[in-house]
């Protein structure tokens, strides 16, 4: 009835990336299209690379949710708010000397992180030249569930985010399968939508909803913001809407890129061609956590946000919101 409240997040010593052969091919820095490297031929559950687990979130789907942030992303957004989650660690070991607590060890060519000693000062993240973090844990679906289980009574569901969650599609599938087997929690994936169709199909049976970021409707703006095309993102939105799995489409409003009424109308117009009931949320860009040129960008004001909402509503969408 009443769960114990051990400090569930602490394991004694977790060698991130110390998976040996399973990791080969994962070491390279840069964007990856999918988690092929994580797939194995046996029926063993997939291994996931977890950056962080939040036990409580009010902003990642319906109700109170646990959120799992997976490491690794196939986009390289100018305004990325978690740039240290873009790549897996390549064990260059440059971070090790920056740790004031000796929580990082370099041994046998691998960087190991000791969460017990870590004071979460994030000096290692600041020092990382590869948009990564040594504070990433390898875990299997069952162990990840055990981390969430103690506070499951407080939750409506679990959201997997990132990074780009779908980069570890097989792990997410196995994890959600475990969640469904162990609880009545619902499941949600936050994705940038640039995802192979077959990965989505695999996830459908165990995923209640998806939230898709449409960074920009305008192809050029999307390319400039993310380094990638948005064609497949729009396909994903169509596909998920058709399968009644689209919880929400989100767009971060960035000054100079997608903050015009025309952009809002086009985005809404695109969604209208699918279903006027699609939920669209405009989020304010905030510079917190960003690196590079985005640090100097301004946060759009209430007027801009209101005009975006109004334009999208004018285009016919029923449910348009904006963040606080």
């Amino acid at each position: 009835m009443l769960p114990d409240w051990p400090c569930v997040f602490r394991t004694s010593l977790s060698y991130n990336g110390a998976a040996g052969s399973a990791l080969k091919g994962m070491r390279s820095v840069g964007t990856r299209s999918r988690d092929e490297a994580l797939r194995n031929e046996s029926n063993e559950p997939a291994i996931g690379f977890v950056n962080k687990v939040l036990s409580q979130s009010f902003v990642d789907g319906p109700g109170n949710r646990a959120v799992v942030f997976l490491q690794g992303c196939n986009f390289n957004c100018l305004y990325c708010h978690n740039p240290y989650m873009i790549n897996l660690c390549n064990h260059c070991s440059q971070c090790v000397s920056h740790c004031p607590e000796g929580a990082l060890i370099f041994k046998d060519g691998l960087v190991a992180w000791n969460p017990e000693a870590c004071i979460e000062c994030d000096a290692c993240i600041q020092a990382c030249p590869h948009n990564s973090s040594p504070q990433v844990r390898r875990t299997n679906p069952h162990d990840l569930w055990l981390e969430i289980e103690p506070f499951a009574p407080f939750l409506s569901g679990v959201t997997v985010s990132g990074g780009e969650a779908m980069q570890q599609a097989q792990f997410v599938r196995d994890f959600f399968t475990e969640v469904k087997a162990q609880s009545n929690l619902n499941t949600l994936i936050q994705t940038n939508g640039d995802v192979p169709r077959e990965d989505l199909e695999e996830l459908l049976p165990v995923t209640d909803w998806f939230m898709v970021d449409l960074k920009a409707f305008d192809p050029a703006a999307h390319r400039e913001l993310t380094g990638s095309e948005n064609e497949r993102v729009m396909d994903t939105i169509r596909f998920l809407a058709r399968h009644k799995k689209l919880f929400q489409v989100r767009q971060v409003v960035v000054p100079g890129f997608n903050d015009s009424e025309a952009e809002a109308k086009q985005t809404a117009g695109f969604l209208m061609t699918i279903d006027p009931a699609i939920d669209l949320l405009f989020l304010r860009f905030r510079s917190h956590g960003t690196r590079g040129i985005a640090e100097a960008w301004e946060t759009p004001g209430n007027e801009v946000m209101a005009s975006m909402v109004a334009a999208a509503e004018e285009a016919g969408l029923d449910q348009v919101h904006r963040s606080i």
Binding site: L2, F58, V59, N64, S156
Partner: peptide, 24 residues
């Protein structure tokens, strides 16, 4: 006491109320 995000997601607060009551 919750921050402003709770107003956008009252279901989340109700989740916590239910669990709290169940605990006693």
């Amino acid at each position: 006491e919750f921050d402003q995000t709770a107003k956008e997601n009252p279901e989340a607060v109700l989740d916590i109320i239910r669990a709290a009551h169940e605990m006693g």
